[in-house]
Computed example of a mutant assay.
Amino acid sequence: MNRRFPLVTAHAGCMGIAAHTLRSVRAGLELGADVAEEDIRVTRDGVAVLAHDDELPTADGPIASVAGMTYAELSGLRLLADQGAQEGGEPETFRLLKLEDILPLIQTSGKAINLDLKVDEAIEPAAALVRKFGLEDRAFYSGCQRDRALLARKLEPALRRMLNADVELFKTMPYDEAMAMTREDALAAGCCGINVYHGIVTKAFVDYAGERGLPVYVWTVEDEALMRRYADWGVGSITSRDVKTLLRAKREWTAPDA
């Protein structure tokens, strides 16, 4: 019987490399990930850039604001990486990248990109770049809870979107009710799947979403035993910083005698 392993998604900053850098994107793709995930924000002048947080520490001390500064202002700053520095060494620095800087890598690799939107303002600039590089079939939005997913459907209906499951919902409601509301929100926003923190996912959730054609993508998984468990449950994708371990789990999971 043929078994299909979940898509391997390389988290921004995979393999201990500073997040939101070309080195990190290349590392995930060259190792064999199916999808590269990147966080998207927008500068004051509307440029889509790679950044998880709005406030970014700089090597010179001041805090930079993505939303409050132009790309030209931000591009001249040395930003401090949140990972990737050698132990006992100097903190690693990097320059802010535009989304446009990494899309040629996605284009030539034949792989997909997960655009994790951190602000509503990123919806349209990101979609414009996806069209520019002809990646409509290989790009999708995540980072969309109900309101952002609905807005994305209104503004850019052709670009696929995943509903981000609201963790707080699962903390404050009975699990079955939270599961049902999440599925209905995904369907109402025309989502192609559900993106969920792995700590709240269950096989029942995966099966329930799958009944309506909604694959469940889980993030961020670093433990190999959990990777195997989620693969057994039939999730659509596993996001990890440890791409090597995830790919090893894939090879062993799909082996004939696995």
Rank of each mutant, 00 (worst) to 15 (best):
M1F: 08
M1S: 14
N2E: 14
R4S: 10
A10N: 02
H11I: 05
H11Y: 05
G13A: 02
C14P: 04
M15F: 00
G16Y: 11
I17F: 04
A19Y: 08
L22G: 06
L22H: 08
R26K: 13
G28N: 12
L29P: 05
L29E: 06
L29T: 06
L31C: 12
D34A: 00
A36C: 10
V42R: 07
T43L: 11
D45L: 11
A48Y: 02
A48L: 09
A51W: 05
H52E: 10
D53H: 14
E55P: 00
P57T: 10
P62C: 14
A64K: 02
M69P: 01
Y71D: 08
A72L: 05
A72Y: 00
S75Q: 09
L79V: 03
Q86P: 07
E87V: 12
G88Y: 04
P91M: 08
R95S: 15
K98M: 09
K98W: 00
L99Q: 02
L99S: 09
L103D: 08
L105M: 15
T108L: 12
K111R: 15
K111F: 00
K111C: 08
A112P: 00
L117E: 09
D120N: 10
E121D: 15
E124P: 02
E124G: 08
P125T: 09
F133S: 05
L135H: 12
E136C: 13
R138T: 11
Y141C: 02
S142T: 13
Q145C: 02
R146D: 07
D147P: 08
R148M: 15
L150K: 12
E156C: 15
P157Q: 11
L159H: 10
R161I: 09
A165Q: 00
V167E: 14
K171A: 11
M173Y: 12
A178I: 06
A178V: 11
M181T: 14
A186V: 08
L187I: 12
A188E: 15
G190A: 11
C191K: 05
C192I: 14
G193Q: 05
N195P: 08
V196H: 02
H198T: 04
G199S: 13
V201Y: 03
T202G: 03
K203L: 06
A204P: 05
F205A: 01
Y208E: 13
G213I: 12
T220L: 10
V221S: 01
E222V: 11
A225C: 07
A225T: 15
M227R: 09
M227C: 15
Y230C: 07
A231F: 07
D232M: 13
D232Y: 07
G236E: 10
S237A: 15
D242I: 00
T245K: 13
A249H: 01
A249P: 02
E252I: 11
T254K: 10
A255E: 11
D257T: 14
A258K: 06
